[in-house]
Simulated scan of single mutants.
Amino acid sequence: MQEPKEWPAAGLNRRRLSGGELEAFFAGIRTRHIHDVVTFLCIGTDRSTGDALGPLVGTKLTELGFGQVIGTLREPCDATNLEQRMAEIPEGRVIIAIDACLGMSDSVGYYLVSGQPLQPAQSVGASLPEVGHYSIAAVVNVKGPKPYWTLQMTSLYKVMQMADEIAGAAASAFG
């Protein structure tokens, strides 16, 4: 994916943010792009607690009135249909990719944000195409030897709390 020409080289590296810092990340995107060109690509499945973060965020964004959202609880965007769902996005859209991930214990509950594409399913060793111009990877649990099991056993409360933080920050920044 080509990055828009107006993106500065600085600030594109991955940063770890708390939920309270997400609004500033979204506000930075808003200053570079009008709301009408932004598409939220919320990746995950409703069949795994930890991996439901993306569809939960997508559903919340839709309920908040965001029109350009791909990946909800009703119509998830997951490993089986990611490329097909990406093809639905019109040319010229700025994509903010959102997905759950596993990480170090001191990063659980934080967000890895970037002005670069996201590599979906990296935590579980799958190979999917990079997506997004901007990305948010929510660290929902600790990475271990059995990533699918870990995602399945992730706290629903934690996932819902993080989905609320992402959707709330987006609504505040773009509202």
Score class of each variant (00 low, 15 high):
63 E>C: 11
63 E>F: 10
66 F>Y: 10
66 F>W: 07
67 G>S: 11
68 Q>I: 01
70 I>T: 09
72 T>G: 03
72 T>N: 02
73 L>P: 01
74 R>N: 06
74 R>W: 00
74 R>A: 14
75 E>M: 09
76 P>T: 02
78 D>I: 01
78 D>T: 06
79 A>I: 05
79 A>F: 05
79 A>N: 05
79 A>Y: 04
81 N>K: 01
83 E>W: 00
84 Q>I: 08
85 R>I: 03
86 M>P: 04
86 M>I: 12
90 P>D: 10
91 E>V: 15
91 E>Q: 15
91 E>Y: 13
92 G>W: 05
92 G>N: 04
93 R>Q: 13
93 R>M: 05
94 V>Y: 00
94 V>M: 11
95 I>N: 02
95 I>R: 06
95 I>Y: 06
96 I>C: 13
96 I>A: 12
97 A>K: 04
99 D>P: 13
99 D>R: 04
100 A>C: 04
101 C>G: 15
102 L>A: 08
102 L>F: 09
102 L>C: 12
103 G>L: 06
104 M>N: 14
104 M>V: 12
105 S>C: 10
106 D>P: 08
108 V>H: 08
109 G>N: 11
113 V>K: 10
114 S>C: 09
115 G>C: 05
115 G>F: 06
116 Q>C: 03
117 P>L: 01
119 Q>Y: 07
120 P>W: 03
121 A>T: 00
124 V>P: 00
126 A>Q: 13
127 S>E: 11
128 L>P: 04
128 L>H: 05
128 L>Y: 10
128 L>G: 06
131 V>N: 02
131 V>C: 07
133 H>T: 12
133 H>Q: 11
137 A>T: 08
139 V>R: 08
140 V>E: 13
142 V>Q: 02
143 K>G: 15
144 G>P: 08
144 G>Y: 11
145 P>N: 07
145 P>I: 02
145 P>C: 00
146 K>Y: 15
149 W>H: 12
150 T>Y: 08
152 Q>Y: 05
152 Q>M: 12
155 S>I: 05
156 L>H: 10
156 L>S: 14
157 Y>T: 15
158 K>F: 07
160 M>P: 02
160 M>K: 11
161 Q>S: 12
162 M>P: 05
163 A>G: 01
164 D>G: 00
168 G>W: 05
168 G>D: 06
169 A>K: 04
169 A>F: 06
170 A>G: 10
172 S>G: 10
172 S>F: 05
174 F>G: 00
174 F>M: 07
